[in-house]
């Protein structure tokens, strides 16, 4: 009975301790392993970031040095850390137990917009592989019209030069030229697609029945803040909410936390598979 009581007491204390669990952030760099609170020698931006998270979450925030992205991924999968910044290769082995929660949008860059690759419905080429060498039209030269579709296609194995590229004024013009047979395929962002193909009348629920969507996907993120899939939903959403406003509320903390991105503008939420080649269609 004593053993039973002791075991139960330990279990209760352990459960209670879990409530006050610190937030453990993996950071790649040299240093002793194990998670520790920052001391006064830490960079000001890092201290600002930890202080902001600690204040908003009401828990201690710890830094957990790891040697490599792969080590960060392993620590995350093992439950030794709660957050890690990973790239696609580091994420791949742990994708079943972890997920992306945040990415950083660079200054001047578009949202991670879904991109639609489409051909005429009469075209037998229904795969990306089948379209190698095809005449492909992009919808404009803006970040959303050109950079984002190119990034999506390149990640899926169709880099610049894979198609015979043409650049139209906008997505609508590109789709018009596809329909007219002047190009074989279009890669346009989802908003341009919706402007043309979204139903505006119950009499015509499918205005683009003459066009076939080969694939629809967001560009793969180059890096993302990754958490375990079993992280409580509320905690995940609080972390997203806190990070999204970081550039407004704590600029020094943002500069540190997003310092791994090029010209960081803001944190954005991310889908679980942001670091993979997942497709929406």
């Amino acid at each position: 009975m004593r053993r039973l009581l002791a075991g139960l007491a330990a279990a209760v204390l352990s459960a209670g301790a879990a409530h006050a669990s610190p937030l453990r952030i993996a950071v790649i760099g040299a240093g002793p392993t194990g998670c520790k609170a920052l001391d006064s020698t830490a960079p000001a931006g890092e201290r600002a970031y930890h202080a902001h998270l600690a204040k908003r979450l009401g828990v201690e925030v710890l830094k957990c040095p790891v040697a490599t992205p792969a080590a960060a991924a392993a620590a995350l999968a093992a439950g030794q850390v709660d957050l890690a910044i990973l790239d696609p290769p580091a994420f791949a082995p742990i994708r079943t137990t972890t997920r992306a929660i945040l990415t950083v949008r660079s200054d001047g860059a578009a949202n991670r917009i879904p991109v639609v690759l489409a051909v005429r419905a009469s075209d037998p080429r229904r795969t990306l592989a089948g379209l190698k060498g095809a005449r492909l039209a992009f919808g404009g030269r803006s970040a959303a019209g050109l950079d984002t579709p190119r990034a999506m296609l390149a990640a899926h194995g169709a880099p610049k030069g894979y198609f015979r590229e043409e650049i139209d004024g906008d997505g609508e013009a590109a789709i018009d030229r596809l329909r007219a047979g002047q190009v074989d395929a279009v890669a346009v962002h989802a908003a341009a697609w919706q402007r043309v193909c979204g139903s505006v009348s119950p009499k015509d629920p499918d205005p683009c029945r003459d066009v076939f969507v080969v694939m629809k996907a967001r560009p793969r993120a180059e890096h993302a803040l990754v958490a375990r899939r079993d992280m409580p939903l509320e905690l995940r959403y609080r972390l997203i909410g806190i990070h999204m406003a970081l550039h407004l509320e704590a600029p020094a903390a943002f500069a540190y936390a997003a310092g791994w991105a090029r010209s960081p503008a803001e944190f954005q939420p991310a889908e679980a598979e942001a670091l993979t080649l997942a497709v929406l269609k």
Binding site: A15, G16, L57, V59, L233
Partner: peptide, 14 residues
Amino acid sequence: LALTACGKPQATAS
């Protein structure tokens, strides 16, 4: 006590 503790999500630690 254990049930009470387990029932609370981690995010309410604060």
